[in-house]
Write a protein that binds this DNA or RNA. Structure first.
Length: 584
RNA sequence: GCGCCCGUAGCUCAGUGGAUAGAGCAUCCGCCUUCUAAGCGGAGGGUCGUUGGUUCGAAUCCAACCGGGCGUGCCA
């Protein structure tokens, strides 16, 4: 990567200059070198402001430091870039033309693997997300977690991590008992037996579809049971049905898990008790008022937390302790939990329990996803369970389609509340970025088809041979791989065209850097926005330069650029899980 | 009250302590005999919530305050 090469070269120059005493009072370089991309083209392709940072410590004018570094670095990078100094003390780097050819060659060579990185170092990561209670349908908030989690998993896999995805099913607590009670009531009612619906329960309308499914499957076979057994079997049976419908819905969104991890066995197999025993040995646990407490306050939480309630039942935290102990025992290097931001209060408690269990809480990263507000043509759609205006994920996918849902939920940073406009997400125009990126990809495909496939002449109704045969094309690609020189034919003398070409190629060349930065900052949304930039640069190039021309060699070179653009768009879209469509 | 997150163009959002704070939409003005105009170009639009501080330099770091969201159970 060019950026890395520049950075390393500068680091070398910096420590060399220090040793030679060229930097005044500065003896060792303790300032991190940041390479940035200047906004204005007159500042080159890359820039570094490290001389400005060093000026104070070195007690030297920044321009002089920049000059020293630039001179030292020049010969090192001479084969791909030039360095120049600009006031107040920047070092600007300008890439040579053949770097652009080299970038395209790399794209062609690596294809679907272009951009793949090894920053993850093969570390094993478990990403746990969605983990919705199996007591009802998924709504748009779950959708955001699902899309973000699945994008992060794709991204980290692409970035060299070994990733597993897991859905934790809270099927052990009171909510299952409550689900059972509600369903039991509806079940009995269906077979003509009067029954009071639990007052504290889930809304009957939301459960009715599942009970209907349950009845279709099991008929009246449970009617002989007494209430206690009935509630129990209803809880278990309804849970399976609901979990199944959640699974099918998530699959429609392109979200699938390596494992659906059930809480129930943790209790049944004594793993929760075991975790509590381990905690008790740590002397970070005490009994008070008939309950067992964790000294969470000593471990960074705002107060202590109950593990075992006065009635002997375990809290959510106790189950989580066992679950996370299990995760650690499975040998992951890193755990990532994606939670709705309404659970942020639980983070310190979980970190505390992990520390008390003798593990490093820093191995757990909790990423919180903020709310999704819906709007329609700019008008806010209020979401409320009580008013029945809650938007279910299924309805959303039905209305705007899987790709738009994924794009919009992936695009933004999870820490920001977002607003999802239903009408915008359906539009097939520039306004809708999800569409715009797909359109760009389809346009690349259309151009390639036009050149490489036989066409039907509209006037004569006769098939005309492809402008370039398949053989010619593979041969060109091969010669390009061996010597990027053949690509030089793409470059235009017309400065207006060249500017757009260079912009597009530079953008494509940045993809690996973009991937790494996204991986490190855990922000797959950056790649969604990056894809949009690529689409935009493609459109601008398309406007000023025809790909299909009479000069075959020029045409092939330009097709090479279109092919590379298509590849980069496809690779970025693959990470965010949006389909790269070939025709529109 | 306390804790966490967020305040950037009319709207939706970018913005890793650095050069003139950026996109898209919306508004106005241009551009179709040409590979998809489902598009492109141009213009206007900003006290980066406020006030202090650190720094050669702050939208970015720190503090206080003002707004909005969420949380603050022996609920999950």
């Amino acid at each position: 990567m060019i950026k890395v090469a520049i950075k390393e070269s500068l680091e070398k120059a910096l420590s060399g200059a220090c040793q030679q005493g060229l930097l005044g009072s500065l003896e060792c370089p303790d300032t991190a070198i940041v390479i940035e991309r200047p906004r204005s083209p007159e500042h080159g392709d890359y820039a570094c402001g490290v001389a400005l940072k060093l000026a104070g410590k070195a007690k030297m004018p920044p321009l002089k430091i920049a000059q020293t570094l630039a001179t030292a670095v020049e010969s090192d990078i001479a084969n791909f870039a030039s360095a120049e100094v600009a006031p107040p003390g920047y070092i600007n780097f300008r890439l040579q033309k053949d770097v652009l050819q080299e970038a395209l060659r790399t794209i062609h060579k690596n294809g679907p693997d272009y951009g793949r990185s090894s920053v993850g170092g093969g570390k094993k990561v478990l990403i746990e997300y969605v983990s919705a209670n199996p007591t009802g349908a998924l709504h748009i908030g779950h959708g955001r977690g699902a899309v973000f989690g699945s994008c992060l998993a794709n991204l980290m896999r692409f970035g060299g991590f070994k990733v597993e995805e897991e859905f934790y099913v809270n099927d052990a607590g009171v909510q299952i008992a409550q689900l059972g009670a509600c369903c039991w009531s509806l079940y009995k009612k269906h077979f003509g037996k009067d029954s009071e619906y639990p007052t504290e329960g889930y809304p009957a309308e939301s459960l009715q579809p599942y009970v209907d499914e349950l009845i279709a499957k099991h008929k009246d076979e449970f009617m002989a049971l007494d209430d206690e057994a009935g509630v129990k079997i209803m809880g278990l049976t309804a849970k399976v049905i609901i979990e199944d419908s959640q699974r099918r819905l998530l699959e429609r969104l392109g979200v699938s898990f390596d494992r659906w991890f059930s809480e129930l066995p943790l209790h049944a197999e004594g793993k929760v008790d075991n975790a509590i025993e381990v905690l008790k040995k740590s002397s970070l646990v005490y009994e008070s008022e008939g309950a067992v407490w964790l000294k969470a306050k000593d471990l960074g939480d705002e107060r202590d937390r109950v593990l075992v309630k006065g009635d002997g039942t375990k809290t959510y935290l106790a189950g989580d302790a066992a679950y996370h102990l299990d995760k650690f025992q499975r040998g992951y290097d890193l755990l990532i939990n994606i939670w709705g931001s309404d659970h942020h209060g639980q983070v310190p408690g979980l970190k505390a329990v992990i520390a008390a269990l003798g593990h490093n809480p820093e191995q757990l990263e909790v990423i919180l996803t903020q709310m999704v507000n819906l709007s329609r043509d700019g008008q806010v759609v209020r979401m409320s369970k009580r008013m029945g205006t809650i938007i279910y994920l299924e309805d959303l996918i039905d209305e705007v389609g899987r790709d738009s849902v994924r794009y919009y939920l992936a695009e933004s940073s999870p820490s920001n509340a977002i607003s999802f406009d239903l009408e915008l997400a359906k539009k097939t125009s520039r306004e809708n970025p999800a569409f715009y990126i797909q359109y760009a990809h389809a346009r690349c495909c259309a151009i390639l088809r036009r050149a490489l496939e036989p066409t039907l002449n509209q006037e004569t109704q006769k098939e005309e041979p492809a402008l370039i045969t398949a053989d010619e094309w593979t041969q060109w690609k091969r010669s390009f791989a061996e010597s990027p020189e053949v690509f030089a034919r793409v470059f235009e003398d017309d400065p207006e065209v060249f500017v757009q070409q260079k912009k597009l190629i530079m953008q494509l060349a940045l993809f690996p850097e973009e991937v790494e930065e996204s991986v490190i900052s855990r922000q797959p949304g950056r790649l969604a926005r990056y894809a949009y930039e690529v689409a935009n640069d493609l459109q601008k190039f398309y406007e000023v330069c025809r790909v299909i021309t009479d000069d075959k060699e020029v045409m092939k070179a330009r097709l090479g650029l279109i092919d590379a653009t298509k590849q980069v768009l496809a690779n970025a879209l693959a990470v965010i899980g949006v389909t790269a469509v070939e025709r529109m």
